[in-house]
């Protein structure tokens, strides 16, 4: 039997074949495109504003401001890998921030307990989103939009629109001015969270199952994956990460504001997630790509404002980035799977 022969002469040279051999130039440009674009942006603005843009202070500012948005964007990509949208991460972030601040300020709870409450609130909201989407079969955009609106109402009702800024632990509120070897602590925390998310999404069976569900839910079911549970869990993870972002937001801003809960707040995160899917591993949502996307957007907007552009340009830029990034990643997906579906 030919088969038996093959088993014995298992080709060792195949095993030695190096991974990802022979990058083609176009492939390299595609994979590294956004990084090159980020470098270009830095070079251009450094040339235009050498005294304000190309300074340690400016880069430190970017590295302090962006981590919250970066964690929010990482929260977004978890359900996105499973083929689902969570547009409530902004609202969850806002509610978690208020819950954490309120626990400290109104209930005099210690910082650690308050943080657990904030992240727990995010996880609970994620569980509600996940139940609605996975077990009640509601379209994820509509379902989470509804939840986001409810959360917005609750936050406004609880705070009367006034930020909670007194009685907060200084350990948390001072975090934005702390740094280790010149690197902002917020940036370091973001890196740790990103590493954890990368591990979960690429190194564990859960991450693999989630990608399988996102690729083809029916095939996943017939491969023994509990698809509903996997989708449910992706929303719990997104909610928890949004809760973490909410806690970090208090640190970055020094208070917990009720104005964060809108959709426009997460637009840069959404843009970054989809920009990220056009780079690194084109066609896939990755933590690395998402971070590159966040810092590309953040740096560009920082540069634009230093050049003296009107603030409304920022909204136009973020909105355009979302649409362009999504259109681009849809094209990449078509190349991977051979068909372009009508947007859902």
């Amino acid at each position: 039997m030919t088969l038996a022969k093959d088993t014995q002469t298992l080709p060792t040279q195949a095993l030695k074949k190096p991974a990802g051999q022979g990058f083609k130039r176009t492939e390299f440009i595609e994979r590294a495109g956004l990084i090159l674009l980020l470098l270009l942006v830095i070079v251009v603005f450094s040339g235009l504003r050498p005294n304000t843009f190309a300074t340690y202070a400016n880069f430190r500012s970017i590295a302090t401001v962006q981590p919250v948005m970066a964690v929010t964007a990482i929260a977004l990509i978890v359900p996105l890998i499973g083929g689902r949208f969570d547009v409530s991460v902004g609202a969850t972030l806002g509610l978690s921030a208020i819950a954490t601040a309120s626990a400290m300020s109104h209930f005099d709870l210690p910082l650690v307990v308050s943080i657990v409450i904030g992240i727990g609130a995010g996880a609970l909201i994620g569980a509600i989103n996940g139940t609605i989407v996975a077990y009640l079969g509601v379209n994820s955009i509509i379902g989470t939009l509804g939840i986001a609106t409810i959360l917005g109402g609750i936050v406004t009702g609880y705070t009367n629109g006034i930020p909670i800024s007194s009685g907060l632990s200084p350990v948390l509120t001072n975090i934005s001015i702390q740094s280790v070897f010149g690197i902002p602590v917020l940036f370091i925390l973001m890196a740790l969270i990103a590493a954890a998310a990368w591990f979960l999404l690429t190194q564990t069976p859960y991450g693999r199952n989630l990608a399988a569900v996102g690729s083809n839910a029916e095939s996943a079911r017939l491969a023994g994956i509990r698809t509903k549970r996997v989708v449910m869990q992706s929303f719990v993870i997104a909610g928890s990460l949004a809760g973490v972002a909410g806690v970090l937001q208090i640190g970055a801003q020094g208070n917990a504001g009720p104005q964060l809960v809108g959709i426009t707040f997460i637009l840069p995160a959404l843009a970054a997630a989809f920009l990220g899917a056009t780079t690194w591993e084109p066609g896939k949502f990755t933590v690395q790509g998402t971070l590159i996307g966040i810092f590309f957007l953040g740096t560009t907007i920082s540069g634009l404002s230093l050049v003296g552009i009107q603030p409304w340009i920022t909204d136009v830029f973020n909105g355009a980035a979302v649409v362009l990034a999504i259109a681009l990643s849809a094209q990449l997906r078509r190349r991977r799977t051979g068909s372009l579906e009508i947007g859902s």
Binding site: T204, P205, R208, N216, G283, K284
Partner: peptide, 29 residues
């Protein structure tokens, strides 16, 4: 196409999707 293959995933990941547990050591593949 509808029930077997994951078009967006690699050959390797398509192969191992039904026995990931075999490659997992303390939660890591």
């Amino acid at each position: 196409n509808r029930e077997g293959v994951f078009q967006g995933l690699s050959v390797r990941h398509n192969l191992s999707i039904a026995d990931l547990g075999r490659f997992a050591r303390r939660g890591r593949i």
